Amino acid sequence: MASMNDLPEPLVPSDVDLRGFTGFMLDVERLLASELVALGTPEECWFALMLWCRAWQQQPPASLPNDERVLAAFSRAGAKWKKVRDIVLRGFVLCSDGRLYHKVLAEEALTAWEKRKKYQERSAKANAKRWADHGDKESYKDAKDSPTRMQEGVQQGDQKDSKTPPVEVEVEGTGKPNSVPNGTDADASNPGMSAKERIFHVVVPWMVDHGVTDKNARSLMAGAAKELGDDGAWQLGQELIREAPLQPASWLAAALNARMPAGKGKGKQSRHSGFDKIDYREGVNSDGSF
């Protein structure tokens, strides 16, 4: 039996973080040409799909624990696991960290990670430029040269209407700074700031920092303001930040629908007619790609 030292290195590095990427691209041609589809029954293919979905949500992504009981549960195969495991686990390889990695999913994970890093870098550079535009030339120089400083501006979106230098914010009612990213162009404790300004200078950048696209974040909060008013939307945004769910867009959409007046939008899948145009799968484009 091969030792751990003889096994390949993990196919996805441990620092890859795809939280917010709630889906992966399915290459139909590659799937139909696979041994899984050629040799497996429809039920076995379903068990395999369940494992792929579970693997995508694991850390590192595209991996699974090498535990027969867990695999039986994750695949939904249950008592059938021993009979179907060889077919269902096609594409997975055991690596030196003791976890099983799916080769195709690992490729998708690495591609998604590279795109997320590029997006973060673009966002950080944009924020650094805004710092410079506000007259903070030294901050701009530091941001260009320091990865730590660059990360302060990661995923805050393209806030073109920013008018004040970036400051740390505090969510009302908490008594301490919340996990709002550094570089948001607002101070939530400033009594002179309107609820609308707080929504788009605090809540939207926080959502972008947590994997929601800038377009989706703005659309959701605009919808919240339309249905609940600016004050109600700001209160909802504060609750979102306090809860810090893994899927902010989905959480916000569900919370907003729960707060809307009874009977409004009755009979529709979503009570707010504009929500059907929003992609709740944070980090995924509307065409399903990363």
Rank of each mutant, 00 (worst) to 15 (best):
L71S: 01
L256S: 06
V180M: 10
L240K: 06
V171P: 00
A128P: 00
L100W: 15
L228D: 07
R242K: 14
E108V: 04
R30I: 03
A244G: 00
Q159W: 10
M4T: 02
K144Y: 08
S14V: 13
V284C: 03
W251Q: 00
V93W: 14
R259C: 03
K226Y: 11
S250P: 06
D287E: 06
N285Q: 08
D276T: 07
W46A: 00
D136V: 05
D230E: 15
K118C: 08
E68R: 12
S139Y: 14
D158F: 11
L36G: 01
V37W: 07
R259H: 06
A48L: 08
Q120V: 05
K160Q: 07
N190D: 14
A77T: 07
L49K: 10
N182A: 09
L252M: 15
E35G: 03
G265T: 04
L49M: 10
E68L: 07
G20Y: 02
P13D: 15
N178Y: 14
R90L: 14
K137T: 14
C95H: 04
N257W: 02
Q269S: 02
A255G: 04
K141L: 15
I278W: 04
N190L: 10
P10G: 01
Q269G: 00
L236C: 01
Y140N: 10
P10Y: 14
D214C: 06
A48W: 13
M221E: 02
P8M: 08
S273C: 08
D287Q: 06
T22D: 15
L49R: 09
A132P: 00
L252K: 02
R19H: 07
V70Q: 13
C45R: 11
F92Q: 00
P205R: 10
E168V: 09
H272G: 03
A112C: 08
A62T: 02
W234H: 08
D17V: 03
A124R: 05
N257K: 11
M221P: 01
K125L: 15
A253L: 11
E170V: 14
T164I: 10
L252V: 03
I241T: 01
V167K: 08
K163I: 09
Y119M: 07
R76K: 09
N127L: 13
A109K: 05
L246C: 03
K277T: 10
G265E: 13
G135F: 14
T184P: 00
K117T: 04
G288Q: 09
I199E: 13
E138V: 11
M193K: 09
N285F: 12
